[in-house]
Design a protein around this nucleic acid. Structure first.
Lengths: 124, 124
DNA sequence: GAATGCCTTCTACAAGTGTAATAGACTGCT
DNA sequence: AGCAGTCTATTACACTTGTAGAAGGCATTC
């Protein structure tokens, strides 16, 4: 499931709360994103076709819900990026980030803690 | 400079060593990528147009070189991803990765070391 | 019951991508 | 001189993406 930038914007809006109407979604988009209502609808339909969203009729209007969790979508995006950009190595990706991005001391601390927490989180 | 998957493959091949001819580049592509020579050429031309590569005539044949460093391309890809997928927060991206991906103990160790190395690397 | 407003589906269209065939040039052999 | 091999540039074509207008259906309200 490869999402484009525009699609991420829609999905992000959806994950914020669902089910939601096209109107609601439109209103949740980043301010810069000034899409006509029908543009939003077109995009949403395409996401439905792609299997990323479900569409349920509620009276006249359609209610949309994500069919993939944000977590899974994120994982899959990162995996693709590792694949294409970091010779398939997630480890290298992380390492690059840690080296290149200026993380704040508190962020560093949190990360170190997370890294030390070897086999805790059941959230696998 | 937004690169597509196919374009990353070309660029990766280029960064492996440059300048390089289209033939060389073609031979360095991942095995699964079975592009006709003219396909490679088309892509390369498009990358030249985009400003990602330079093309220099050497006799009949063209030699290509990257105009952006791999590092910069990677940074920019990660920034976009953070933007679109992690509410603009690189920190969140890293954290997500560290939590979700099973890094090997040795990778963890390397990362912790890198994180502790607060103000070392001049490679900023 | 005619106008207003909101929703839906259909259609459109330009730009970007993936993928390549074709045809024209030049090089080197025989 | 002519053929084989290699390059290049041009052209093509289907699919995807971004962006939206148009037209038709139902509800609300004068």
């Amino acid at each position: 499931m490869r999402l484009t930038k525009a699609e991420w914007q829609l999905m992000n809006a959806l994950w914020q709360g669902h089910p939601a109407t096209a109107r609601e979604i439109q209103s949740r988009l980043p301010r810069e994103t000034n899409w006509a209502y029908t543009t939003v609808k077109t995009m949403l339909s395409r996401l439905v076709t792609k299997g990323a969203l479900s569409e349920r009729k509620d009276g006249l209007a359609a209610m949309y819900s994500p069919l993939v969790s944000r977590r899974k979508a994120r994982l899959s995006a990162l995996r693709s990026m590792a694949e294409e950009v970091f010779d398939g190595s997630v480890g290298m990706l992380v390492h690059f980030l840690v080296e290149e991005e200026n993380l704040s001391p508190s962020e560093r601390k949190k990360l170190i803690d997370a890294l030390k927490d070897e086999d805790k989180g059941g959230a696998k």
